[in-house]
Design a protein around this nucleic acid. Sequence first.
DNA 1: CGCGCCGTTGAGCCCGTTCAAAAAGTGTGG
DNA 2: CCACACTTTTTGAACGGGCTCAACGGCGCG
Lengths: 254, 254
Amino acid sequence: MHKTKGALTQPAKCVACPIRKMALFQPLAQSEIKSAQTYKSENRMLAAGEDIYRQGDTCTEIYTLYDGWAFLYMDISPGKRQILRFLLPGDLLGFHGDLEGCRHPHSAQGVSCISLCVFPISRLLKMFRKHPKLGIRITWMTAQDNTLAHEHLASLGRRSAHDKIAHLLLELFYRVRICHPESDRQNTIDFPLTQELIGDAVGLTSIHVNRTIKELRRSGLVQIKARKLTIADPEAISKLTGFNRRIFPPRHII
Amino acid sequence: MHKTKGALTQPAKCVACPIRKMALFQPLAQSEIKSAQTYKSENRMLAAGEDIYRQGDTCTEIYTLYDGWAFLYMDISPGKRQILRFLLPGDLLGFHGDLEGCRHPHSAQGVSCISLCVFPISRLLKMFRKHPKLGIRITWMTAQDNTLAHEHLASLGRRSAHDKIAHLLLELFYRVRICHPESDRQNTIDFPLTQELIGDAVGLTSIHVNRTIKELRRSGLVQIKARKLTIADPEAISKLTGFNRRIFPPRHII
DNA sequence: CGCGCCGTTGAGCCCGTTCAAAAAGTGTGG
DNA sequence: CCACACTTTTTGAACGGGCTCAACGGCGCG
């Protein structure tokens, strides 16, 4: 599980960034990227299971996830934690609205080894002044995170185990495919989550996650094998479980 | 229940607005308020139970709740809904990051009759250009909403009925008191929520909400009577249930 | 080959639900 | 001001979804 960091994609210069379409710098013209890049301090690699930041830490940086999956979580009580959100390449994390003196209200961790682009908060004000589009962009991304959190609230509060898990899998399935538009007819994605992580995200025991996935598999709806997720007929399950795809506008639309 | 709208406070001019410290215009100097006010189209009163907007509607306005309580919600399936967030005077609603062509991802409704300040989205761009502080402010408010949603996720996913309800009551208790700094030693607040609304917020049946509140009352922790909530020793329950007050920075700090 | 993490399965229990019905408030119209 | 209708709160009994505890199998890695 603890893969070597060497397995990760090394980030190129921002100009040639393959995930830029999904990320913070999306609104910038090619000509602006070089200047914007100076606000990035470094690229950072973390081993699987390492925390990116911890609840209560003072915020000094924000991050764009460059490679690998990650998640935000809160420790509730010993042995209990809630995963708030899964992050895919291009997703922003660590921004909580304040440019100084705020503390992280949750922790963040990589699912496996990950690679991050790091932006010191001290440079953000200057960056937003120079590139107002990035201010708009970060506001938009924050609002989108809100909508996603709301969708999760609906799942946790009012859906059965079956539907909670189906919704989560569908959400991740579509989010991954948005990043790979070429694979629009592909119905298998890489899927590095353990059943325990799924359980911590939807508020169920890993044991019950297992039983539920077994059921989903037996009814032919999903297939998880060897870190791959296959959803034969996404539209069908969406209808079956009331999943609304429109809640995930591609990040590069605005 | 359906009180007449006349019971509401009539909004004064923004210059004299009593809730401004908690609301969108908070960062503006007295001298700027008059110009900013022109971006407000009207004040609107709604009867109890009327929707402010509905899931799927095109967004054309954003709102500041001026008087009364409201909530955001999603309909899951007939008879099931999830309340995403309660709104108190000064709270912003209807902003989802887009300035055109987006649709509301959830619905919003008043708990009892309410009064709203309405800002047409078409004027927002101009407003943010003229008063960049408002852009920062709205970003900050959106990020705060996110933190609050995360706290709710933790409740719904990983806490017992007892703790879910205790947390919600504490959250509302502190949020109301922030709006009334003079009442910092008061431990009773106005509390217009029915047990069914509480249930829809924490993902429980109103029947079970009732039994749980009964238990909270018998252990002397909270008292709900005649639309008033009393929490004798907020600090004590906070410790007992792991509630972290720091997640609610007063809205007028930034 | 052995260790550790992950997935799988079984049995029994408990928290919260469902269904049903009565009691207590609350607003409305006469 | 009172009577009526409706909403909200309260209580009981039985069911069930998801949890707990416990054990075993499988796979990857050292």
